[in-house]
Design a protein around this nucleic acid. Sequence first.
DNA 1: CTGTACATGTAAGTAGTTACATGATTGG
DNA 2: CCAATCATGTAACTACTTACATGTACAG
Lengths: 187, 187
Amino acid sequence: MELTTTEYTVLGLVAAGERSGYDLARSAARGAGFMWAPSRSQIYKVLPRLVEGGYARRREVRQSGRPDKELYAATPLGRRALRGWIERVDHEPTPGVAPYVLKVFFGWAAPPEASLRQLDAYRAVLTQRVEGWEETRRTLDRDEPVHSRLALEHGLARARATLAWVDEAERTLRRVARRRVSGLKSS
Amino acid sequence: MELTTTEYTVLGLVAAGERSGYDLARSAARGAGFMWAPSRSQIYKVLPRLVEGGYARRREVRQSGRPDKELYAATPLGRRALRGWIERVDHEPTPGVAPYVLKVFFGWAAPPEASLRQLDAYRAVLTQRVEGWEETRRTLDRDEPVHSRLALEHGLARARATLAWVDEAERTLRRVARRRVSGLKSS
DNA sequence: CTGTACATGTAAGTAGTTACATGATTGG
DNA sequence: CCAATCATGTAACTACTTACATGTACAG
């Protein structure tokens, strides 16, 4: 892996438009933070790494009255790398955040099929997980405390809800793609 | 916080019975891992910390043919600390894993009311999150890419499913508590 | 004779946290 | 006068990862 998931995420954010570290942290706190909301200090660590690798460039903006700021934007190399990451489907579970939803979130930066492929992969992973947990539940010891079963149901409930979301998201993306080819306005 | 969430989690696992690091990693991989499944090396780091603090004791078991093992068990101090943690309700979101489900999972180590209080707190946190995201969705820019809305729906779907689980878990725990006071066999 | 299970651990790295340092402007 | 907003960053820490080191026994 050339960049880490965290680095790709920050790259995706600055690829959407020139941003400062402060901007990213603020918009993560309110809004986009339903996916990923690291602290400011984490963001300030990642941004320079992107510049070093040539994935982003830094531009200093002098301000009077308020502190100067440093704006970051993706370079052509950065945009290419981002697109490659979005299109690449991980079948092996990566440590930390599952990248599927993240890649759907950044789906605007790649062809629509990429998002659909991510949803397919996500469904496969979730289905396998649900099946494993259902098997676990079936073989759960009779004298195991209720609490174990409750925690298991928690995982199952979330995984099943996520599967339903995958189906719905797929329908939405197909609808949008159809609308786009028939020449209507896309959103 | 005297111990961290990770430390309390491992403490809870060894409080259920004497275990080796290897045991914990294995049963996390299959079974209990629906909540928390760190790598072996992480577990091997945490266990000695518990011993140093007096929360667990280590017992070396010589084996012939296979490697010797070190079994860990919670001390009375450890069990007291665990119970205190389970009963304590965090209203401020802690970094990393949300402790609510974890505390329900370990609910057998404290009075039943503790688990019910954790569920209440979890519901409050989730409700607030859902309301915030619904507000975000309402004010979402018309020309924002679909992908943003999809990611938001992902979070909403999971949070709503989790809320439904909270209600169901509460009913289950109340039923069990009733059965217990009326003198029937508990599971 | 190869791989898997048993069993513990180190090394090096990323990901993330809070607390601290600095400093101007604006609004109550 | 105090707090919030703007703005970047360091220090010290926990959490977690993979890869590596070491060694026996048993099953195919």
